[in-house]
Amino acid sequence: MATHAHTHHEHSGESLIDAARESLVASGEQWTSMRSDVFEELARHDRPASAYDIADNLSAKRGKRVAPNSVYRILDLFVSNNLALRVESSNAYLANSHPGCTHDCIFLVCDECGEATHIDNDDISSKVRGVAKSANFSTRRPIIEIRGICASCS
């Protein structure tokens, strides 16, 4: 079982924000100041962040209340444009370090510290898609979460 090694660039910091903006604009969407602020806040987190965490931090930064519903709408836009990844079991989000990339999501989620490691494994993804196809089910984007304890916590 081979884990997919990315041959494209893993972005971080300003490079990540620039790549996200370019990807969103290329898809026909606008990169507004609020979307920029939400993405920057999301990108600074090492662990999955909830819309409430992001809204609270942005409220403090902006000096006025930012509604979690507004943040949810922006995060949904980011997920649909592959700028962010959603950890379903914790309803939290991670910035996609390679915006626009459409690999299936496989997360290793630590029950102790909350860390979610995103891995790509084309063998597993193709098998999951194959099982769905054999059941006459059309997949959009499989998300697999494996709960357990990370190396740091074990």
Rank of each mutant, 00 (worst) to 15 (best):
M1Y: 04
A2D: 09
A2Q: 04
T3I: 10
I17N: 04
I17K: 13
D18F: 14
D18N: 15
R21D: 08
E22N: 14
S27Q: 12
G28A: 05
E29D: 11
E29N: 08
E29G: 07
T32Y: 11
S36R: 08
E41V: 00
E41R: 01
R44H: 06
H45K: 01
S50I: 01
I54Q: 00
G63Q: 02
R65L: 02
V66M: 07
P68W: 03
N69Q: 13
N69H: 09
V71K: 03
Y72K: 09
D76A: 07
L77Q: 09
N82F: 12
L85Q: 08
L85R: 10
E88K: 15
S89Y: 02
A95P: 00
C101F: 13
H103F: 14
C105Q: 10
I106N: 06
L108P: 13
C110D: 01
D111M: 08
D111P: 07
E112Y: 04
C113H: 05
I119M: 10
I119K: 07
D120T: 02
D122V: 11
D122N: 13
D122E: 05
F137E: 12
T139C: 07
T139G: 09
T139S: 11
T139M: 06
I143F: 01
I144M: 11
E145C: 06
E145V: 05
R147I: 10
G148R: 11
G148T: 07
I149P: 03
A151G: 13
S154A: 14
